[in-house]
Structure formats: C-alpha cells, structure tokens
C-alpha cells in the first residue's frame, strides 16, 4: 500500500547557479534510486517568478519542499548529504539489491 504513495517535490532555485544545478542533480538521483515512478519534481526559478517566494516562505536557495505527503518538509542547501535528505523527506531507502 505504502508503495502507492506519490511524492510531490518542489525545488526553488534562482537561475542556474552551481548550487541549484547540483541540488537538482542530487534530488533527481535520490528519487530515481528510491522512488522510481512515484515522484514528481517541480522546479521553480524565482528569478522568473519572484512572487512565488512568499507562499512557501523561501529565504534560502536552493530550497526543496516536500508538498506531498504532508506534512510539508523543507530542506535547504545543495542536498549533497543523501542520508540527511532521505531522512528529512522521510523516504525509506530501497533495499540495496535494487540499487543499480
């Protein structure tokens, strides 16, 4: 049943800075490894849509938000620490044998 849970993530960036690019690369990899087919990542570039910063109370860039499942979680930084990100998003890592 739990496997049916979808994950909706949102990544706030400000242009293509190295930190933002790295964050997107990292989260995509973690999701592919652990949530294959059950996730979506929406990237919001605040340089293009600055008005969206208020809604999710964005201060730091990059910021990753877990919209679903609730409660909303927030992780800031380039997401380089996989374990911390997975714990933060409450994603249970897939068993090792499934990893490529």
């Amino acid at each position: 049943m739990e496997n049916e849970q979808r994950w909706e993530l949102r990544l706030y960036v400000a242009g293509s800075t190295p930190k933002s690019v790295l964050a997107l690369k990292n989260i995509t990899r973690y999701c592919e490894e652990n949530l294959e087919g059950r996730y979506s990542i929406e990237v919001i570039d605040l340089l293009k849509t600055p008005q969206l910063a208020e809604g999710d109370q964005i201060v730091a860039i990059p910021t990753l938000i877990r919209k679903v499942p609730i409660p909303i979680r927030k992780i800031i930084g380039d997401l380089s620490d996989e374990e911390k990100v997975l714990v933060g998003l409450n994603i249970r890592p897939m068993p090792l044998k499934n990893k490529p």
Binding site: Y12, A14, T17, K19, L22, A23, L46, L47, P50, Q51, A53, E54, Q57, I58, V59, A60, I61, P62, T63, I72, R73, K74, I75, I76, G77, D78, L79, S80, D81, K84, V85, V87, G88
Partner: peptide
Amino acid sequence: YIRIERSEIEETGEYDLEGLFIRLNY
C-alpha cells in the same frame, strides 16, 4: 512576513539567501 521555523528546516550542503534577496527586491 517572513517566517523561519527551525524545526521545519533541514540543512544539507551549500546554500545562500538569494530567496530573501528576491523577495525583498520583489
């Protein structure tokens, strides 16, 4: 109103406050 709640935020890796700058600028 800018709300920063420590308990809701995890930190991993490098970041900056560009979000704050963008909000102020906006």
